[in-house]
């Protein structure tokens, strides 16, 4: 798990800086997770490929992929590690969505790094 996370961080760091420029959120930004669908919980994925595959697959294939996902409660905090604009494409989306790498900073999975959909991430406004 640690090696995977380290590898992930290195790859993303070596990734194009311009990739972050078109995303709605930016590296290091503090964010809150909640979904805009009827269920506000957020599914997080262990790889960006699975994140994209989940949204482009059929319903049955998506069901089979659920073991690779974790479900976090709406309102969970996190910090943006990286963002790939327009990475996730789905026939049900009006337009491609971003793939955002997030380090969770609250909840039972605090400290883990996972991939989420860009529309499930909101900048956190500090009071």
């Amino acid at each position: 798990m640690r090696k995977a996370c380290a590898f992930l961080i290195v790859c993303l760091t070596l990734g194009s800086a311009t990739a972050l420029a078109d995303c709605r959120v930016h590296r290091g930004e503090h964010v809150v997770l909640y979904s805009t669908t009827d269920d506000p919980s957020v599914l997080m994925w262990d790889s960006r490929a699975r994140l994209r595959e989940y949204h482009s697959a059929s319903f049955d294939v998506a069901q089979a992929m659920l073991p690779h996902a974790v479900l976090v409660s709406p309102g969970t905090h996190g910090d943006v590690v990286t963002c790939l604009p327009g990475y996730v494409v789905s026939p049900l989306f009006a337009s491609p969505d971003d793939a955002v790498g997030v380090t969770l900073s609250s909840g039972p999975l605090k400290g883990t790094v996972r991939w989420v959909l860009g529309s499930d991430v909101r900048p956190r406004h500090k009071n």
Binding site: T37, D39, S41, F59, A62, A69, L71, S90, L92, A94
Partner: peptide
């Protein structure tokens, strides 16, 4: 947890399908 995730799956797909029907 699995039921919760399945519930989330249905929710996502139904929401997106409804949006597609609207479009």
């Amino acid at each position: 947890e699995e039921l919760d995730k399945r519930n989330k799956l249905f929710s996502d797909y139904e929401t997106l399908t409804a949006a597609a029907i609207r479009r």
